[in-house]
C-alpha cells in the first residue's frame, strides 16, 4: 500500500513540475500579451505616426506643447476615474464636480481671497463632494451608477445656482503663468498632472490602501473576509476622484481665464474613455496609472490630429466613441 501511495504522490509531483516550468514561459508571454494594458501606448504611437505622415506640423514643437497643455486636465480626471473603476465602480459626476469646484474658485476670487486659498477651496469642494458620494455609495450601499448620476445633476445644478449662470473672470499673474509657462516646451499644467499621476501610481502600488482598492475590486467577499472595510475603500476612492476634479478645476480656470459653470460633458466621456483605453478592468481588480495616462494623451492627440487635418469638429465625438468601443472590444478578446 505505502509504496503505491508514494508512487502516486511522486508521479503527479513530477508531472506537476512540468506545467509549472511551461507556465512560467507562457506566463511571461501572457503578461506581455496582457496587451489591453498596452493598447493605449501602442495606439498612441500608431496615431502619432499616422498623423505625422498626413500632416508634418503634427509633431512641431508648438503643436506638441498645445497637445500636452490640453491633455493635463484629462490626465487628472483619468487618474481619479481609475481609482473608482479599479473598485468596480464608475464616477459619472467627475466632470460636473470639476465644474462645481471651478465655480467655487470663482466665489473665492470674487471675495478677494488669495489665489492660494481659491485653489484650496476648489480642491476642498471637490473632495467634499466626492466624500459625500462615497459615503452614500459605501455606507448606504446604493449603486454607484445612480449616486454619481444624481451627483452629476446636483453638482452642475449647484454650479449654476452659486454662479447665477455667470462666469467670473480671473485675472491673476499666478494663474496666467500656470497656464502659459513651463519647463521648456512642457507647460506647468501637464507637469502638475504628471507629478500627481506619479504620486497616485505610488499610492496604488506601494501603499496598503492601493492594495486594498485592488482587492476590493477583485473580490469584495475575499477582501471583507480578511477584514478590509469595503465601505471605507469606496468612500476613499470617490474622495480621490473628487480631489482630482478639484485639481483639474484649477487647471481649467487657468486655461479658460475664468470660472464658469460650463457643462464640460466631453470630459466625463473622455475620462471613462481614457480608463477603458488604459486597459483598466471595468469590473474592478486590475488597473495601472500610466496606461490611462497614455489613454488621455491618445484621446487628446486624436482630437488635435483630426482638427489639423481639417476634419469638422462634429466628427470628433464619433471618432472618440468609436476608439473607446474598439478598445473595449479588444480587451474583451484578451480573455
Amino acid at each position: 500500500m505505502s509504496p503505491t501511495t508514494s508512487e502516486q504522490t511522486a508521479e503527479p509531483a513530477a508531472s506537476g513540475a512540468a506545467p509549472v516550468e511551461r507556465q512560467s514561459v507562457s506566463q511571461r508571454l501572457a503578461s506581455f500579451t496582457g496587451w489591453s494594458e498596452w493598447a493605449a501606448p501602442i495606439g498612441l504611437l500608431v496615431l502619432v505616426i499616422v498623423f505625422q505622415i498626413l500632416n508634418s506640423t503634427f509633431l512641431s514643437l508648438g503643436n506638441i506643447e498645445a497637445m500636452l497643455a490640453a491633455a493635463a486636465i484629462l490626465i487628472l480626471l483619468s487618474v481619479g476615474q481609475t481609482f473608482v473603476v479599479a473598485t468596480g465602480g464608475i464616477d459619472l459626476s467627475i466632470a460636473s464636480t470639476m465644474t462645481l469646484s471651478a465655480v467655487m474658485f470663482g466665489v473665492g476670487y470674487g471675495a478677494d481671497w488669495s489665489i492660494f486659498l481659491c485653489c484650496l477651496l476648489a480642491v476642498v469642494t471637490g473632495s467634499l463632494f466626492g466624500l459625500l458620494q462615497g459615503v452614500i455609495i459605501g455606507r448606504g450601499k446604493i449603486t454607484d451608477f445612480i449616486v454619481t448620476l444624481g451627483g452629476l445633476s446636483v453638482a452642475s445644478g449647484l454650479a449654476l445656482v452659486i454662479s447665477d449662470g455667470q462666469p467670473v473672470t480671473v485675472i491673476s499673474r499666478f494663474m496666467l503663468r500656470l497656464s502659459t509657462d513651463g519647463i521648456g516646451i512642457i507647460g506647468w499644467p501637464v507637469i502638475v498632472a504628471l507629478v500627481v499621476a506619479l504620486i497616485f501610481h505610488g499610492v496604488l502600488f506601494h501603499t496598503r490602501f492601493g492594495t486594498h482598492v485592488l482587492a476590493a475590486g477583485g473580490s469584495e467577499d475575499a477582501a471583507r473576509a480578511t477584514g478590509i472595510s469595503i465601505a471605507r475603500i469606496k468612500t476613499a476612492v470617490y474622495t480621490v476622484a473628487g480631489i482630482m476634479a478639484g485639481l483639474a478645476a484649477i487647471l481649467l480656470v487657468a486655461r479658460v481665464g475664468a470660472a464658469e459653470p460650463a457643462a464640460n460633458t466631453q470630459f466625463l466621456l473622455n475620462s471613462v474613455a481614457a480608463v477603458v483605453l488604459g486597459g483598466v478592468s471595468l469590473v474592478g481588480g486590475r488597473a495601472t496609472i500610466w496606461s490611462p495616462v497614455c489613454g488621455a494623451l491618445l484621446l487628446t492627440a486624436l482630437t488635435n490630429g483630426l482638427t489639423l487635418l481639417g476634419v469638422s469638429q462634429y466628427y470628433q465625438p464619433i471618432a472618440v466613441g468609436g476608439v473607446v468601443v474598439l478598445a473595449a472590444l479588444l480587451a474583451r478578446f484578451q480573455k
Binding site: T211, L214, G217, G218, A222, A223, A225, S281, G285, R286
Partner: peptide
C-alpha cells in the same frame, strides 16, 4: 478561518 469559497483575490 479557511473559507469554503477560499477568500482569495484572483487578480492579485
Amino acid at each position: 478561518t479557511v473559507h469554503q469559497n477560499l477568500a482569495l483575490v484572483e487578480d492579485l
